[in-house]
Design a binder for these strands. Structure first.
Length: 514
RNA sequence: GCGCCUCUAGCUCAAUGGCAGAGCAACGGACUCUUAAUCCGCAGGUUCUGGGUUCGAAUCCCAGGGGGCGCACCA
């Protein structure tokens, strides 16, 4: 409002020195900042506090999308959005306005708004936020429009938008200036809408199954629940080292001990490892635990979650995997890890075999075996080297050796294997689950093996978590557990090739501002 | 960490050893049904940074920085 105090503004405040003043961007910013000063001098706040709209742009399109061409209505609406395009016709201006989920054309006639407002609208820059009131209409060509009566600037854009047709293409700029990417690239907006829909779908599905959503600590005294290098941090008041969590698992299972029966968490985990098209140092996991079930129950839940998420996010269960249309609604293939290795090597393998025999087989297939690896680890390495990357259609790989699965329960039919699965799609691991080990005596032995591996120099190995063992000693019912990589699932459903396209602000080196 | 590629106007891109250019955006002008509006005019440059070769470097070489891809790491 005009009575609001306007802080003193001076163009000389701008940190643009005289030598730079003639340069393109500086010149453009100066011009727009000059508009701000002029508005303030005239008693108008270029950044007003609020605007009440009657409709979103999608509302208008839904309600009036069927209007015939050249229709004038008496329906008065108030809308708000960012002005992205402007087509000046002399005494008529067409502009494109966009809000969160729609767009619409503004029809501005000099005869209706008068000379002063017409000139003000003409002086707006692409990128400015505006609030508009007017009547719903269609043009002679049939374009749904708002015949503008009044228009107010809601926020001035001082920087110019990216190219109106090509948007932003430079990956560096797209990730660093995600705001500009979202303004100018439809594909970016689409990917993050899909991400939201998937997470919302998970919550809906799990709530319907009586799962409770919980939040467990991100700061851990011990980084357990997976094999990965953690980020280290420090608590000042307690003067103690802490780790950012690498998994959600051990706290959620404590809640199963506590009797919550069905819990899940969707949360960020942190792994201090390489960055690639499939890895970001912080990423989002969904883990759930269901009392009285085993790994077959959580495999079924995995399929159900995937199908519902795809339907909710993109309206179909058909997704593209490396150029092949694949229906997620079909039951996922199930195959044991040892059978995949046998298939690739032509030799039946099993963790009970002599280590030397497996090592020779691995050598033959150029899998380099490290001295501390046991038979189970050798089998897994052969699986990863020979079979994993070829698993395109969704495949549950099951029966991981005990050696590499310290938290999973031994297979009821084979003491060398666990009741575990990993889900692979497009050659990538998307999920991991098992019948949870709930015998505290056996869990202690498994932890002690981990501790030995860590002391032998394996930085990813775990340690003995005494509190977790104490929890198990109170008794954990039979439980099935599942973890799903939400980022990779989103990549699959959105059909994007890199994890940076579905993480709003991926990890980058810090930008240097001069 | 290693290898390959890449970095030019606000944005999208040309120029491959010989005068740094175009489109969009901006600026000035024309236009009352356009929609990537159109048309006329004008302006905008530390070619990522530093060094070198050369009569001459955006271009070739060296070093550094950002980014991409691949490898390694990621049980």
């Amino acid at each position: 409002m005009s009575s609001e105090p306007t802080p003193p503004q001076d163009a000389a405040d701008e940190p643009i020195d005289a030598a730079e003043h003639a340069r393109g961007l500086s010149l453009e910013r100066s011009r727009r900042l000059g508009q701000l000063d002029a508005m303030r001098s005239a008693g108008t706040n270029p950044y007003p506090y609020r605007f009440d709209r009657t409709h979103t742009l999608a509302d208008i399109r839904k309600e009036f999308g069927a209007l015939e061409a050249a229709t004038e209505t008496e329906v008065h609406v108030e809308v708000a959005g960012r002005m992205l395009l402007k087509r000046d016709q002399g005494k008529l201006i067409f502009a494109s306005l966009r809000d969160r989920d729609g767009d619409i054309q503004l029809f501005v006639s000099k005869a209706i708004v008068g000379d002063e407002l017409f000139d003000a609208i003409n002086a707006l820059d692409l990128g400015d936020w505006v609030g508009v009131s007017g009547l719903v209409m269609t043009t002679r060509k049939g374009e749904l429009s708002i015949k503008v009566n009044k228009l107010v600037l809601l926020a001035k854009a001082v920087r110019p938008l990216p190219d109106k047709w090509h948007g932003l293409t430079d990956p560096d700029t797209r990730y660093r200036q995600r705001y500009a990417d979202l303004i100018s690239n439809d594909e970016a907006r689409r990917a993050f809408a899909i991400r939201h829909a998937i997470i919302a779908s998970f919550r809906k599905t799990l709530s319907a199954k009586s799962f409770i959503e919980v939040e467990t600590p991100v700061l851990h005294a011990e980084a357990g629940g997976a094999h990965a290098r953690p980020f280290n941090t420090h608590h000042n008041a307690l003067d103690m080292p802490l780790f950012l969590r690498i998994a959600l698992e051990l706290h959620l299972k404590r809640l199963i001990v506590g009797g919550m029966e069905r819990v899940y968490e969707i949360g960020r985990v942190f792994r201090n490892e390489g960055i690639s098209t499939r890895h970001n140092p912080e990423f989002t996991m969904m883990e759930l635990y269901q009392a009285f079930g085993d790994y077959s129950d959580v495999m079924a839940i995995t399929e159900e979650l995937f199908v519902a998420a795809a339907l909710d996010a993109i309206g179909t269960t058909i997704v593209d995997i490396n150029g092949t249309a694949t229906d997620l609604a079909e039951p996922f293939r199930r195959v044991r890890m040892i059978d995949l290795v046998a298939e690739k090597t032509g030799v039946a393998v099993h963790p009970s075999m002599e280590r030397e025999e497996l090592r020779a087989l691995a050598d033959k297939h150029n899998v380099h075996v490290q001295p501390q690896w046991g038979t189970g680890k050798i089998i897994e390495e052969m699986f990863e080297a020979l079979a994993e990357h070829e698993l395109m259609a969704p495949t549950f790989v099951t029966g991981h050796p005990v050696e590499i699965s310290p938290l999973a329960r031994v297979d009821r039919n084979d003491p060398f294997l666990t009741e575990r699965f990993e889900l692979f799609v497009g050659g990538r691991e998307l999920a991991n689950g098992y019948s949870e080990l709930n015998d505290p005596i056996e869990q202690r032995l498994r932890f002690e093996d981990e501790q030995k591996a860590k002391e032998a120099g394996n930085a990813e190995a775990g340690t003995v978590d005494e509190d977790y063992l104490r929890a198990l000693e109170f008794g954990m019912p039979p439980t099935g557990g599942l973890g799903i990589g939400m980022d990779r699932l989103t990549m699959l459903i959105a059909g994007v090739p890199t994890i940076r396209d579905i993480i709003l602000f991926p990890t980058l080196r810090p930008e240097v501002f001069e």
